[in-house]
Nucleic acid binder design. Structure first.
Lengths: 106, 106
DNA sequence: CATCTATTTGGCTACATTGCCAAACAGCCA
DNA sequence: TGGCTGTTTGGCAATGTAGCCAAATAGATG
């Protein structure tokens, strides 16, 4: 694999990697229902505010969410809702695995 | 977020995380064109055979690819081609970022 | 059986990620 | 300005991941 090909796949992987964390997946799922401020998300996640903020930064840097400051709050929203398609595929992967596990057990 | 919710998102994230690496993304892309044996993939990737084998193991354990031993070769193929949908979304995220960067520059 | 090829596994080091705490920062309001 | 709330940043320890080499394994073949 040459350098430019590697760069191409690496930059794509960076975006997918941003989705590859339970908390961040949860955040995206929550944001699919509309914009939320960090404090609301923090409450839902139940982790330290700084932890949530850093997860949001990862999603923002990947281009998946957008932030907007209003007053002293920051509201996050999905910039590319297509990432929600990931969920359906993940379900299907899990379904296939589960089905296969049952078949092997028989 | 309660424990069972966390587990739910973590297990979903595990599958996405498996796609979150340049080399593994490349492998999936290559496998979308049909099954390949490890030695072919190794040549295409240009890394150590053991490295490629480990990446394939990550994809296999996530349920994304399947392996089949024939003779003394192992052939890998996509078990859930829906992961290819990731590519389109990633492109759209990158497109949005690029467009926005241009607009900000103006 | 001995050996060859294809693949996986173990082990190690280097590097990246996560999550908490503390500190800094930004906007609001008295 | 000073203090308050909401958010981000810096720093650190713990843990996880990547990639290489060497060794183990499995099937084919002489």
């Amino acid at each position: 694999m040459d350098d430019s090909t590697r760069r191409k796949y690496d930059s794509r992987a960076r975006i997918i990697k941003a989705m590859g964390h339970g908390t961040r997946l949860f955040l995206v799922d929550e944001l699919s229902r509309g914009e939320r401020c960090v404090c609301d998300l923090q409450e839902l996640v139940g982790a330290d505010m700084s932890t949530v903020s850093k997860h949001l930064a990862v999603l923002r840097e990947a281009g998946i969410v957008r932030d907007e400051k209003r007053g002293n709050q920051v509201f996050y929203s999905l910039r590319c809702p297509c990432v929600l398609n990931f969920f359906a595929c993940v379900e299907s992967v899990m379904q296939t695995s589960a089905t296969q596990a049952v078949e092997l057990a028989r």
